[in-house]
Design a binder for these strands. Structure first.
Length: 401
DNA sequence: AAGGCGTGGCT
DNA sequence: TAGCCAAGCCT
């Protein structure tokens, strides 16, 4: 069987058919596809809600990281109707730690809109999907192809890499995106009828645009990796222009982006008994809508003295204790170093305007980004069981052996 | 349209 | 270690 297929492949290749690429990809995918929680098994019905939820979570985020979050979200909100009725705060709290929190805000907005404007069913065309909050060109194409079998090609980072190698696209990203997209579209099975992106699988049900896209993504994740690709295992290895040249690791070419400048600031961990002073960040922007302890501004040339002057105003000025060391955190566009100051205030001390007291034992229910988990753990030190707070997520993912 | 926007794992 | 890198979107 395998031998026969190899022979056929070889014959087609000798005929010079680029049309073989979809066949090779699908054969490889059928044998090597990853088993992922959001993927329907062959013969199972695809759930657009799961495809959408996974695609949003997977934006700039690894499969390994997404796994537990996807399961938690699915258990709590099994369909888009349930999520459409959830509060933004509940979604932010469940999302805490996953990063890029605008995704959570858009998730909330998108679920509500699908419920209100689409009767609780995801639209099934790329154009209508593209109009939803948080759904850009890639995600719209991915959902259309994977969930609705539309003939369209989503192009993510994996596919950019695979395609740029396959065709030796020398132009650097992001300028090369249009060309890469056009080349990627040639990997789809030939359309039989109708306009691209509008044609669904016919009654024969044989159009597999979603599987071709997922094949390319799996290929990029497991074979055509950024470094040390395993070209001998690649179903397109004999067909790859970069491999023939021997410089496959140099693709995709990218224009370098400038590194962000270190910013400094201070964070203030105030205890009142077993409570900590927190506030909610502005709804948009960095860590938008998330919980934080009060902090100074974060600026590139800001010393400790300037930062300490921005401490929260409490009824009786507390004596600020600076913790040794600092909390460092790296955002996408700048590294951050926060000095941590602690203070203990009397019972019944009022929270300043816009702030509130939260029991330490309930911090885990807050929408705390990981930066703030680090800050609080640093501020409370070994005194408390707080350490369990910062490590609980990891323990859930990696149970002690 | 280039930069804002998190986090963890990898080499 | 200090970058890179990961199923991008929004403005």
């Amino acid at each position: 069987m395998a031998r026969a297929a190899t022979t056929i492949r070889h014959t087609h290749k000798m005929e010079g058919g680029d049309r073989d690429r979809p066949v090779l990809l699908l054969e490889w995918y059928d044998r090597n596809r990853r088993l992922l929680p959001w993927r329907a098994l062959p013969g199972e019905t695809v759930d657009p809600y799961r495809v959408w939820l996974s695609e949003i979570m997977l934006q700039q985020t690894t499969v390994k990281t997404v796994g537990p979050y996807f399961e938690k979200f699915l258990a709590r909100w099994p369909d888009v109707e349930a999520m459409g009725r959830a509060s933004l705060d509940d979604i932010l709290r469940m999302w805490a730690g996953l990063g890029y929190y605008s995704r959570a805000r858009n998730l909330h907005a998108c679920a509500a809109r699908v419920l209100r404007d689409h009767g609780g069913r995801f639209p099934d065309t790329e154009a209508d999907l593209r109009a939803l909050p948080g759904v850009g060109p890639y995600t719209a194409a991915a959902i259309a192809a994977i969930a609705f079998n539309r003939r369209t090609m989503p192009v993510d980072g994996n596919i950019e890499r695979v395609v740029s190698r396959l065709f030796t696209v020398d132009e650097p990203l992001p300028k090369a995106k249009p060309r890469i997209h056009a080349l990627a579209a040639t990997l789809l099975e030939p359309s039989r009828s109708g306009r691209d992106g509008e044609s669904r699988a016919g009654h024969d049900g044989k159009s597999r645009a979603g599987d071709i896209a997922q094949a390319l993504m799996d290929l990029g994740a497991t074979i055509c990796t950024p470094k040390k690709p395993s070209c001998v295992l690649c179903p397109l290895g004999d067909d790859c222009a970069a491999r023939a040249r021997g410089d496959q690791e140099t693709f995709p070419r990218k224009t370098p982006k400038k590194a962000g400048e270190l910013r400094r600031g201070a964070a203030f961990v105030v205890r009142r008994g077993n409570e900590v002073l927190v506030r909610t960040r502005p709804a948009k922007g960095l860590l938008g809508g998330m919980t934080e302890v009060p902090t100074s501004t974060w600026l590139a040339a800001q010393d400790d003295a300037a930062a300490l002057k921005q401490a929260p105003c409490l009824q009786s000025a507390p004596r600020w204790q600076r913790k040794a060391g600092a909390v460092t955190h790296v955002f996408t566009h700048f590294p951050l170093e926060l000095a941590v100051y602690t203070a203990i205030v009397a019972a019944r001390t009022a929270a300043p305007e816009g702030m509130r007291w939260v029991p330490i034992a309930r911090l885990n229910d807050e929408a705390l980004p990981n930066l703030m988990r680090k800050v609080i753990a640093h501020g409370l030190g070994d005194e408390m069981e707080i350490h369990a707070l910062a490590t609980r997520r990891k323990q859930q993912e990696d149970p002690p052996s």
